[in-house]
Each structure stands twice: as C-alpha cells, then as structure tokens.
Simulated scan of single mutants.
Amino acid sequence: MQDFIHDKRVYYSAVEFAMAYIGGTWKIPVILALADGPLRYGDLKTAILHITDKMLNIQLRELEKKQMVTRTIFREKPPRVEYGLTERALRSLPAIQALESFGRELMDGEAERITERRG
C-alpha cells in the first residue's frame, strides 16, 4: 500500500489507520458500550469499568472528532446529553468483535500454557 498522510501523520497500512480510530485502551470499550444504543454519560461511565471521568471525556471528544460518536443535547430541564454511535462506528463493530474473539482465544491459550507449567 502506498503511504497515506492524514492530519500530518503518515500511515503505512490500512490497519494502522483503522487502529488510529478505534485503538487504545478505552475507545473500543466506549464503542462496545454504545453498541446497543445511545447512553447518557453516567450510564456510559457505569458500563465501562475502571475508566476515569477525565479519560472518558477525552475518549468521547476524540471519537466525536473522528465522527464515530454523536453527542445529542436535549433542551430539557435539567439538560440531558446522550452519546450514540455513527454509521462509521457501527461499521467498525464486526472488526472489533473479531478482534475481541481473537483476543479471548489468545488469553485462553496463555492461561492454559501457564496452568501447564504449574502442573
């Protein structure tokens, strides 16, 4: 593949570029938490174990910028905000689910290997 330049960065493969959108510790958990439909911030925070408020805010902003997440403000009293997935993010779900399945296979294999060494 020919080098691809985006936002002043060179990407050497399509996989590398895709991972810029969904990679990192928290982007995939955010996308998966929103896979069944929009959530309010508090519900999203509850759904993603161990994420801090600061990190959740950062990830939501980054995913919004990359057009993976929408932020809808409802003009109510008190105001309500919901986060949801865009079509782009919905198209990423099969790839994320495949990565999750592969990761679980790797984890199971490593757990078996450790158990065999102990036994």
Rank of each mutant, 00 (worst) to 15 (best):
I31N: 04
R88W: 03
E112L: 14
G24W: 04
R71P: 00
S13R: 07
I58C: 00
S101V: 07
G84D: 13
E110C: 08
A14C: 07
A20C: 02
I28D: 02
T52W: 08
I5S: 07
F4D: 01
D3M: 04
D3S: 07
L85T: 11
L39E: 06
L44K: 08
E116I: 07
V15Y: 03
E87T: 12
Y41D: 07
I28V: 15
K27M: 02
L32I: 06
V15C: 00
G119W: 06
T46I: 10
L56Q: 04
T86D: 10
L44D: 09
E82H: 11
M107W: 07
Q59N: 12
P38T: 11
R61D: 12
T70I: 13
A98L: 15
E64F: 06
E76M: 11
Y12C: 00
V81D: 05
H6Y: 13
Y12W: 04
D36L: 05
R88V: 01
I5L: 06
K8L: 09
E16P: 09
R104N: 13
P94Y: 12
I48F: 05
E100S: 15
V15K: 09
E76L: 12
K66A: 10
R9Q: 15
T70N: 14
E105S: 14
L34Y: 13
M19Y: 11
Y11D: 05
L32A: 05
V69C: 11
I31R: 05
A47M: 05
T46W: 01
F17R: 13
I58F: 12
R91V: 04
M107T: 13
G84S: 15
E100V: 13
N57Y: 03
R9M: 12
G37E: 09
G37F: 09
R40M: 14
W26P: 04
E16W: 05
S101Q: 15
L34P: 07
M1D: 05
K65R: 11
I31T: 06
K77V: 08
A35H: 08
T115C: 02
I114W: 03
M107R: 14
K65G: 01
L99C: 14
A47R: 14
V81L: 04
S13T: 15
G119P: 01
S101I: 07
H6D: 08
L93Y: 10
H6P: 00
A33D: 06
M107S: 10
A47Y: 03
L49E: 15
Y12A: 00
A98E: 14
K8I: 00
R9P: 00
E16V: 06
M107E: 15
M68Y: 03
N57P: 01
H6F: 10
L63K: 03
A35F: 02
I114A: 12
M1F: 08
A89I: 04
R80W: 03
A18I: 14
M107G: 01
R91C: 11
R9V: 12
T25L: 11
L63V: 04
I96N: 10
A20W: 05
R117F: 14
Y41V: 06
E112V: 09
R91Q: 15
M68N: 02
I28H: 02
Q67P: 01
R118K: 15
K66V: 00
